[in-house]
Design a binder for these strands. Structure first.
Length: 632
DNA sequence: TTAGGGTTAG
């Protein structure tokens, strides 16, 4: 049936072309001619009218013209018209060419109508590699990983050979390493591993599964002339927190003569952010000017300045941004909150809502963090309740954590416990750890023990919990319990993560690790530190030995404090940087009360600005006070 | 007609 119809089109088309230069005696030919013209002119309404007229006469135009019409529908988001084209192409027994069917499937995919795409896919008898790949790619994009993988298997079973398009799509759908290894083997077998799209997809998926070693192997297998491949590998390391390697690769890329563009710079900024490398970040900023209003890049820049503790720079970037999305606002709100500007953070949050942009899960984390770190109980409750009620955002464990932190710091430990019991999602290790931290501040030994037990039940290897608990016992002078914990840790082979601080001097990072004496200027630093402690004692510094874990006496207790890595990093900063330069320290553990006091006094006596970033927040010390208001 | 890289919390 459809064969004869196909023949009919051919004859009409030849008539249409043949008669184009003179009058059009044949009404069918003139209809097709008109239709073709409208399609190429992208005049959708007239083309649809012409198509309807052709439909009435039972005639069809050629495939290329229909594909132009479908492009036109796509460009205008004209779903209904697209469906009408589909209907027309399958009416009265006419059967479009395979190529055109693939265009229709792809149209549904682009309209995000996967079910319609699938229905059409199932109807057609012969599916080629393009039909299969279109479906696989659609499922992978929709994160329907099982479907994408299932379709690959079915495709292979039908004897259709996947090509580079298929593999680069299906790789994204890998949801486990065994899948990935198997696919990688297939790719090598089919010789498609040198295709740049397949390679970047491999690098990407290995990175996503934290297999940066394998990603690097794929990258190193052959020299590349492709910028995206470079961007993929740099992003892979930056996203996995291996900022050093990301920056090394970036240098390699520059040496190889590749230009850095938006995606490169975004990843490089992320690497700077990870290492708190403000100076390098500023250098990258110079390159960013070229892409002045790139939203993602500006967002990364904002985050870099916030995480490097330079709020002035962040604010300048934020103000200059013409287009801001929810990420820009969330970054700035969280950045302000973490740097001790809670009220400014909340003001910005209000402005965001006024601007009409809807806050999301992460925006609320920033707002609640601001409340908890400024002790704003009422505001905290308000935002916590409003997230679901006004914005339809379900509070997650992290939001509960902020609230428990807020209540806990304010001394309302019972309310905090009550909130834990109310959690629909149930408490996890982080929840109990937050409560434990509050118990420590308020010296509630019984509740602390309860919280610690909950944590160790869920995660018996958690060194941080043993340390916190033993600190609580130490504060309560319960040295027997301290010793018991140390025995348990020894028996279980649990080690405390050593405190480590980093300070940037002349674009070089200097690391100070507790118990590591390898810094070449350590003697000098220690001498300087001794003199400094004496000087500070002259203005009233009394070492706060509450933070000493061991059962030590008098001077020994003081002595164990002076080895804290941030003190060494701070002294080294004092020695190496000029008075005008801010001393910026990043550390892996939370700052202790004694080091906090020490930094405040140093800022006052030495007239310095000091910024210390711990895993949770930032402390800006200036004129003897800290931006956290001693509340952290 | 089918494919690749970048941003927000912890």
């Amino acid at each position: 049936m459809h064969k004869s119809a196909g023949f009919a089109i051919k004859s009409f088309r030849s008539v249409a072309y043949h008669t184009s230069s003179c009058t059009l005696p044949n009404p069918s030919a003139s209809l097709i001619h008109e239709f073709t013209q409208f399609c190429y002119q992208r005049n959708l309404p007239r083309a649809m009218e012409a198509m309807d007229a052709m439909h009435k006469h039972g005639i069809w135009a050629d495939s290329i013209t229909y594909s132009e019409l479908i492009k036109c529908c796509l460009a205008r988001g004209a779903v209904e018209q697209g469906k009408r084209v589909h209907k027309h192409l399958f009416s009265n027994g006419y059967h479009p060419k395979k190529f055109l069917i693939n265009v229709l499937i792809s149209m549904y995919v682009k309209f995000n109508m996967l079910d319609d795409a699938r229905e059409l896919f199932d109807q057609i008898p012969e599916r080629d590699f393009v039909s299969w790949t279109t479906m696989i790619s659609a499922y992978a994009n929709a994160k329907l990983n099982d479907k994408a993988l299932e379709f690959l298997i079915l495709m292979l079973r039908e004897g259709v050979k996947p090509n580079m398009y298929t593999y680069s799509s299906v790789l994204r759908a890998c949801d486990g390493l065994s899948n990935l290894k198997q696919l990688h083997a297939n790719i090598i077998k089919s010789g498609l591993d040198s295709d740049i799209y397949v390679r970047s997809a491999l690098i990407d998926i290995y990175s996503k599964w934290s297999q940066t070693g394998n990603a690097l192997r794929v990258f190193n297998e052959m020299a590349t002339e492709d910028l995206v491949i470079w961007n993929s590998i740099i992003a892979g390391f930056a996203q996995n927190g291996d900022s050093d390697e990301a920056l090394k690769l970036f240098k390699r890329m520059k040496r190889a003569g590749f230009p850095a563009e938006q995606a490169t710079l975004t990843s490089v900024l992320r690497a700077c952010t990870g290492l708190a490398l403000l100076e390098l970040g500023r250098q990258v900023h110079v390159h960013v000017f070229k892409y002045d209003q790139d939203l993602i890049l500006n967002n990364a820049l904002l985050d870099m300045y916030c995480k490097c503790g330079s709020l002035e720079d962040a604010d300048t970037v934020f103000t200059r941004m013409v287009v801001k999305d929810v990420i820009s606002w969330s970054t700035m709100i969280a950045g302000l909150a973490q740097n001790g500007y809670s009220r400014e953070a909340l003001r910005l949050f209000e402005s965001m809502k006024v601007s009409g942009l809807k806050p999301n899960y992460i925006t609320f984390l920033g707002a609640l963090f601001a409340c908890s770190h400024a002790g704003l109980l009422e505001a905290g409750w308000y935002h916590f309740r409003s997230m679901k009620k006004l914005f339809g955002v379900d509070p997650g464990r992290e939001h509960y954590c902020c609230m428990i932190d807020l209540l806990g710091r304010a001394g309302k430990l019972d309310d905090a416990l009550e909130l834990i019991n109310e959690m629909e999602c149930g408490p996890d290790v982080a929840t109990w750890r937050t409560l434990l931290g509050a118990c420590r501040v308020h010296r509630n030994v019984d509740l602390a023990i309860h919280a610690a037990k909950q944590i160790l039940r869920l995660y018996p290897q958690d060194a941080g919990t043993y340390i916190l608990l033993s600190n609580i016992y130490a504060n309560a002078q319960r040295w027997n319990d301290v010793a018991q914990i140390r025995r348990t840790m020894n028996d279980m082979g649990i080690r405390k993560e050593p405190g480590c601080s980093w300070v940037e001097v002349n674009k070089q990072i200097h690391a100070f690790i507790l118990g590591d004496n390898s810094h070449p200027q350590l003697d000098e630093i220690n001498k300087h530190l001794t003199r400094l402690i004496q000087k500070l004692k002259g203005v009233g510094y009394v070492p706060d030995t509450n933070f000493v874990l061991q059962d030590l006496e008098g001077e020994q207790r003081e002595d164990s404090l002076r080895h804290h890595s941030e003190k060494l990093a701070l002294v080294f900063g004092l020695m190496s940087l000029s008075k005008e330069q801010t001393i910026r320290i990043r550390k892996n553990l939370r700052i202790c009360g004694d080091c906090h006091l020490f930094a405040k006094l140093v800022a006052k006596v030495e007239h310095r600005i000091i910024v210390i970033r711990d895993p949770i927040r930032y402390h800006h010390f200036r004129y003897g006070v800290c931006s956290c208001g001693d509340y952290w």
